[in-house]
Simulated scan of single mutants.
Amino acid sequence: MRLYWTSLWAIITREALRFIHQRERFVAALVRPLIWLLVFAAGFRAALGLSISPPYQTYITYETYIVPGLCGMIMLFNGMQSSLSLVYDREMGSMKLLLTAPLPRGWVLFCKLLGSTAISILQVYAFLGIAALFDITHPAIGYVTVLPALIVCGLMLGALGLLLSSFVKRLENFSGVMNFVIFPMFFLSSALYPLWKMAESSELLHDICALNPFTHAVELIRFALHAQMNWSALGWSALALAVFMGAALLGYDPARARQR
């Protein structure tokens, strides 16, 4: 067990040091959702009406509605950025040293996943703090109850990034794959508009959004920020985490790599 905990601490520390040395990455992670919150929301507020729906007990501003979706955006982008570093490490050769450690490969990848999730959570709380400065707040208890939801969502979105990095071998190809995955997942979800609003325009789009794992991650965060549990969103997010992580482990399996 000592060896397992030592490897966990070493990988998380490595992720933290990499993040500290890349300050522009932290700034970019906050600027992107803040632009949506402070600029785009001003235009969308007049175009999109919101009704009273769980977990909200009264009418809310559009800025309040999109905060959970923007938290999910931060975790989605950070999960992809962390997986991009895996592709970079594979090209530079350091990934080979990491995967040849005398530990189960699944544990090594899980440690990597925990490190990226911890960084994502720090970024989300920084964003929530900045949003509070603009009077976009949630119940005080919500900032505590949202932590488990952030852990589940961060692990799920990070596992998706691990899965993509197991199949993309070249650094220049990963950016295109990131955009192909990130933007459809974000826009075809409940991050920017409720699903009932999507159903008014197209039932097909509504069904696609309902099947999107990112939708359930956003709803899990949304309910947790109001100290409520969305069991359906939790179940679907956990299922997506298990599928993505299982597929990533198969992708990093050395026997399958030799077959390819």
Score class of each variant (00 low, 15 high):
35 I>Y: 01
35 I>S: 12
35 I>F: 15
36 W>F: 15
36 W>K: 07
37 L>Q: 05
37 L>K: 01
37 L>V: 04
37 L>I: 02
37 L>T: 06
38 L>K: 05
38 L>T: 02
38 L>A: 12
39 V>W: 09
39 V>E: 14
41 A>G: 06
42 A>L: 15
42 A>K: 09
42 A>E: 14
43 G>K: 13
43 G>S: 03
43 G>F: 15
43 G>A: 02
43 G>H: 10
44 F>C: 04
44 F>M: 15
44 F>H: 11
45 R>V: 03
46 A>P: 00
46 A>W: 15
46 A>K: 12
47 A>G: 00
47 A>Q: 12
47 A>F: 15
48 L>F: 15
48 L>Q: 15
48 L>N: 06
49 G>F: 11
50 L>T: 02
50 L>A: 00
50 L>Q: 02
51 S>K: 08
52 I>R: 12
53 S>M: 13
53 S>R: 08
54 P>Q: 12
54 P>W: 08
54 P>N: 01
54 P>G: 11
54 P>S: 00
55 P>E: 04
55 P>S: 03
55 P>N: 07
56 Y>N: 04
57 Q>G: 09
57 Q>A: 15
58 T>P: 01
59 Y>A: 10
59 Y>K: 07
60 I>C: 02
60 I>K: 02
61 T>L: 15
61 T>R: 15
61 T>W: 07
62 Y>D: 03
62 Y>E: 00
62 Y>K: 08
63 E>W: 12
63 E>K: 11
64 T>N: 12
65 Y>I: 05
65 Y>G: 01
65 Y>W: 10
66 I>G: 01
66 I>N: 06
66 I>L: 05
66 I>V: 14
67 V>P: 00
67 V>T: 08
68 P>G: 04
68 P>Y: 13
68 P>M: 13
68 P>V: 10
68 P>S: 03
69 G>Q: 11
70 L>N: 04
71 C>S: 14
71 C>Y: 00
71 C>G: 09
72 G>F: 10
73 M>C: 06
73 M>D: 03
73 M>H: 05
74 I>P: 03
74 I>S: 10
75 M>F: 09
76 L>A: 14
76 L>Q: 08
77 F>W: 13
77 F>M: 15
78 N>Q: 14
78 N>F: 13
78 N>K: 14
79 G>P: 02
79 G>I: 04
79 G>A: 09
79 G>Q: 07
79 G>W: 03
79 G>L: 14
80 M>T: 03
80 M>G: 04
80 M>K: 10
81 Q>H: 13
82 S>P: 02
82 S>R: 12
82 S>M: 11
82 S>K: 09
83 S>T: 08
83 S>E: 01
83 S>Q: 03
83 S>L: 04
84 L>K: 11
84 L>A: 11
84 L>E: 05
84 L>D: 04
84 L>S: 12
85 S>E: 10
85 S>Q: 09
85 S>C: 03
85 S>K: 10
86 L>Y: 14
86 L>K: 07
86 L>R: 05
87 V>R: 13
87 V>D: 00
88 Y>I: 10
89 D>M: 15
89 D>N: 13
90 R>V: 09
91 E>L: 10
91 E>H: 05
91 E>R: 11
